[in-house]
Design a protein around this nucleic acid. Structure first.
Length: 906
RNA sequence: GGACGCUUAGCUCAGUUGGUUGAGAGCGUCGCCCUUACAAGGCGAAGGUCGUAGGUUCGACUCCUACAGCGUCCACCA
């Protein structure tokens, strides 16, 4: 043979193979997608990871999924485009850099805004975006030429454009918002920067006199010092004790102000007295109640949490705890402090300085959500966008119907600065540039102009991601109009369910609102940002806890890849990831993937060895039907049925089913049965021509199986695909055509025939196992066939029996005679005898048969009972009843034969 | 407290519009094997009253109700 002898190592070692092929793919531009009108596009935009983040198991899952989808579609003939990128992550990034500064003994204020931002950019250049780089190790086929960052100039332009448009349309407004305020640092901090700890405190019951009545309203509070900001007392509308008080007025003690008694569902009748003081300026819940009832907001503290001019003079200037003491003392004197209870409450503290957080009102910018939410809800309810799994629709709907306005301003420096400009007289407007602002405000170039100090919430840039990656709104100027038209909308979004509101919902809103400006249509199908949303599983540890950096319970993904190989890690996580269920993950599970890779590797070695020794026929392809025997027909049937299952499961995103189907086919059908069966032909005395056809077909099926598996395990499939047959220079399996299933190859008759042969082999093996007969010892098999079956129909499989069950001689008997001292079995009504002179232990065989008789007798009994039930025979469908009748017959016959053989043993 | 999800072999999970006593796999366990692709392997075996209690049905792992345990998200309690 002219073919070179290829020797593969006995054990697959992924490291070098993976490095080699990734470089091969990337250097040849195989990941790059371009506009191609002859092909359908298939697009995914990556959920941009934080530039401060490091790769964790969630990313491994998420990106293995995306890569599998992208590679699959690419091989199915789509122009598959996976756009990578990173998120600037305002708070997280600013914190990282501030921490670094702290080591130098500096704060950001020492540097000033511009210098500080420069520092962040430097940091980003040096350390940022590690995750995106690590994705290469995993084998991700991202179109790196299209990589974007949410603070890129073009994406910042998109942010500005959207802000200005929404401002002009009245969808963005300035208002008061209650934030977590640190009175020491004088800054607002986000919810997840607040550390909550349980603390022993007191619950104070205070009487508020009711105007024009001798009654008092007793409220319970943990924070009496905020009472100066009280604007109402609330009760539950269905609380019968207080019906008569709703609408009355109470006098706020100490401040001596009249405030109303209102009714709100929020109030818990069982807590305290069932009456709550409402302080919108100093409690988040009260803030929302205040919004609902249009109550005023009375701020009683300054930025350091000292009492301000809105409290009576004696308290002014006191800090909140002094004010609490003072107020309690005064209430006590006036007899208004009814009682004090011990109470444990959850106190929020600043993550930096541990100061107790003060809920505090401040000026913030908001997006009006109602007008955006309605169309975004509709496209999910009417199926324009599909969620997988669909139960998230309900969660989405609930949130969208109760949506609150979105506070988009952040008191940070790192981020998109709010494009609002103020004139000296306080008038303001939103604009894309200072010039535009001056024009809008009617100012001269020399007039002073001040830009808002705050930056935008990070999500305000990521919600535009599906189209801002194509440089909207400057796509035309930058030559990206065709890309935007071709690759938008994207097809599949793969993301974690935690960010369904932060990100998924808002992208839908942004798409429906802004895409019409480039799709030039109102058709929601064209404007939505994606068609399908795949919500990933949560990866948990052995104790069921979510894997996270802070718990330290997550294996280091790069270590896993180094130890098991990227293919193994990918396969394992996808094998473990049922759609919508959590994954219990442990490092050792990667043995599933590693062992599977090794199995495939060795199947490849076997084929190469035979190709080199025997050669292969010219005729190739997974539809080749030359010199077929049972094993061939069967593996073709199994292959096409597997390919069909893969297609179906891919369509419904059941990726774990895809992996399972491929695993079972390759390992059990192809390796365990098919390869073992063709050995009997390859090493038998058939003509060389036939042997070569067998080799060709074995390679055909393997080649096609590698292609089916490639989206899951890209590296090893490429390595073997390149080895098993000569390829064009620069060719790659990732651009090869996916194997297409042909249902005409799927034949039940062949599978049934195969099942019979397998059952015979398995029965002989079981006998060998039970009798502890060494695998190297050959045995004889005698069969007694039922009337309908010719001995030739068995004899033609002699080769299989020899190789797979170590049967030396196969013979047949008729009539009443039966071999003495033989182990027996009944397969589909046919009797097997394995004479074991000297080897057989009669007692073992008796026990074995007895067990089998019991089992079959049990089955028979239940079938009999079922058929004896007239209700069943009457009401059950005909085919079900027919099936039971067939069972009755087989079980009866089998039982008779087993019993006769049992009797013959004694 | 509200919404949702899960509960099948020792462990991790499959189980496709209800057909049962013909409930599968991997790991682990036990037995026999270094058989010329693979010991990261091959062959065989043991192991399950499908969370509990009811209900619907000729028939329930599969549908309904309640309960228990676990988990997620939301609201988190003045």
């Amino acid at each position: 043979m002219a073919e070179p002898q290829v020797t593969l190592a006995k054990v697959y070692s992924p490291q070098e193979v993976e490095r080699k092929w990734y470089q091969y793919w990337e250097s040849r531009g195989l990941f790059h997608a371009r506009v191609d009108p002859t092909k359908k596009p298939y697009t995914i935009v990556i959920p941009p990871p934080n530039i401060t983040g490091v790769l964790h198991m969630g990313h491994i899952l998420n990106n293995s999924l995306q890569d599998a989808f992208i590679r699959y579609k690419r091989m199915k003939g789509y122009e598959a485009c996976w756009i990578p990128g990173t998120d600037h992550a305002g708070i997280a990034t600013q914190n990282v850099v501030e921490k670094a500064l702290m080591k130098e003994g500096k704060t950001r204020h020492d540097l000033g805004r511009d210098k500080f931002i420069e520092r962040v950019w430097e940091w980003k250049k040096q350390y940022g975006g590690v995750i995106i780089k690590q994705l290469r190790t995993l084998g991700c086929s991202c179109d790196w030429e299209r990589e974007r960052f949410t603070m890129d100039e073009s994406l910042s332009n998109a942010v500005k454009e959207v802000f200005v448009r929404m401002f002009d349309d009245g969808l963005i407004y300035r208002g008061k918002y209650i934030v977590n305020w640190c009175p020491k640092d004088h800054t607002a901090i986000s919810d997840d920067e607040v550390n909550y700890t349980l603390q022993e405190g007191k619950l104070y019951y205070i009487a508020y006199p009711i105007a024009g009545s001798s009654e008092v309203a007793v409220v319970a509070t943990t924070r009496p010092e905020t009472m100066f900001g009280d604007v109402a007392v609330a009760v539950n509308p269905s609380d019968e004790r207080y019906q008569h008080l709703i609408g009355k007025t109470v006098t706020l003690p100490l401040a001596m102000k009249p405030i109303p008694i209102i009714a709100d569902e929020y109030v818990d009748q069982a807590f305290g007295t069932g009456m709550v003081k409402i302080t919108p300026a100093h409690d988040p819940n009260d803030f929302w109640i205040g919004q609902r009832h249009n109550l005023p907001q009375v701020n009683v503290m300054d930025v350091s949490a000292r009492m301000n001019e809105n409290v009576p003079p004696p308290y002014q200037g006191l800090d909140r705890y002094e004010a609490r003491k003072g107020a309690l003392a005064d209430l006590e004197t006036q007899g208004l402090l009814v009682k004090v209870e011990d109470h444990t409450n959850n106190i929020g503290r600043c993550y930096r300085c541990d100061t107790v957080i003060e809920p505090y009102l401040s000026d913030q910018w908001f997006v009006r959500m109602k007008p955006l939410a309605e169309p975004a809800l509709n496209v999910v309810l009417d199926g324009t966008i599909t969620f997988y799994p669909d139960r998230w629709v309900k969660v989405y709907e609930h949130w969208m119907r109760n949506v609150r306005d979105w506070c988009i301003s952040r008191q940070l420096w790192w981020g998109h600065r709010i494009p609002v400009y103020y004139a000296a007289d306080g008038r303001f407007t939103a604009a894309r540039s200072e010039d535009e602002a001056r024009t809008k405000l009617g100012l001269q170039p020399s007039d002073p102009l001040r830009q808002d100090e705050d930056v935008l919430d990070t999500w305000f840039s990521s919600w535009l991601w599906p189209f801002s990656v194509h440089d909207w709104p400057q796509h035309e100027k930058l030559g990206k109009a065709a890309d935007l038209a071709y690759f938008y909308p994207t097809d599949t979004l793969v993301t974690a369910p935690e960010i369904i509101f932060f990100w998924v919902a808002r992208m839908i809103m942004a798409g429906l609102r802004f895409a019409p400006s480039f799709t030039h249509t109102d058709d929601p199908h064209k404007n939505i940002p994606f068609r399908d949303v795949y919500f990933t599983s949560i990866v948990r540890d052995a104790r069921g806890r979510k894997m996270s950096k802070s718990l330290g319970n997550s294996p280091e993904p790069l270590d896993l890849i180094a130890e098991y190989g990227a293919d193994a890690v990918r396969f394992t996580i996808l094998y473990l990831a049922p759609l919508g269920q959590d994954i219990i993950y442990a490092k050792e599970k990667n043995e599933i993937g590693r062992n599977f890779a090794n199995k495939i590797w060795n199947a490849g070695r076997f084929l190469l060895m035979n190709r080199d020794q025997i050669g292969e026929a010219e005729k190739r392809g997974e539809f080749n039907t030359d010199h077929l025997d049972l094993a061939d027909r069967w593996i073709l049937s199994r292959f096409h049925s597997t390919a069909l299952d893969v297609d179906r499961a891919m369509q419904t995103y059941e990726i774990n089913k895809v992996t399972k189907v491929l695993y079972d086919f390759i390992w059990h059908d192809y390796c365990d049965w098919y390869v073992e069966m063709i050995k009997s032909r390859l090493y038998g005395d058939e003509p060389l021509e036939v042997k070569r056809a067998v080799v060709a077909r074995a390679l055909d099926i393997f080649d096609a199986s590698l292609r089916l598996l490639h989206p899951i395990m890209p590296f090893i499939t490429e390595e073997l695909w390149q080895h098993i047959r000569p390829r064009q220079p620069g060719a790659s399996i990732m651009r090869a055509e996916m194997a297409e299933p042909d249902p005409s190859f799927i034949t039940k008759q062949v599978e049934d025939e195969m099942t019979f042969v397998q059952n015979v082999i398995e029965s002989v093996r079981t006998i060998r196992g039970e009798m502890s007969i060494s695998p190297s010892k050959e045995i004889s098999l005698i069969m007694k066939l039922s009337d309908g079956r010719e001995s030739e129909s068995i004899r033609k499989y002699n080769g299989y029996l020899q190789r797979l069950a170590k049967v030396r001689s196969l013979s047949f008997i008729t009539g009443q005679s039966r071999p003495k001292r033989a182990a027996t079995a009944v397969v589909q009504g046919e009797e097997l005898f394995v004479p074991l002179e000297g080897l057989i232990d009669i007692e073992v065989e008796k026990a074995r048969l007895h067990k089998e008789i019991d089992r079959v007798a049990g089955l028979l009994k239940s079938v009999q009972a079922k058929l004896a039930n007239p209700q069943f025979v009457d009401k059950a469908p005909k085919d079900v009843v027919e099936k039971e009748r067939e069972k009755l017959q087989t079980f009866t016959q089998t039982l008779e034969k087993l019993q006769r053989n049992y009797a013959a043993l004694a």
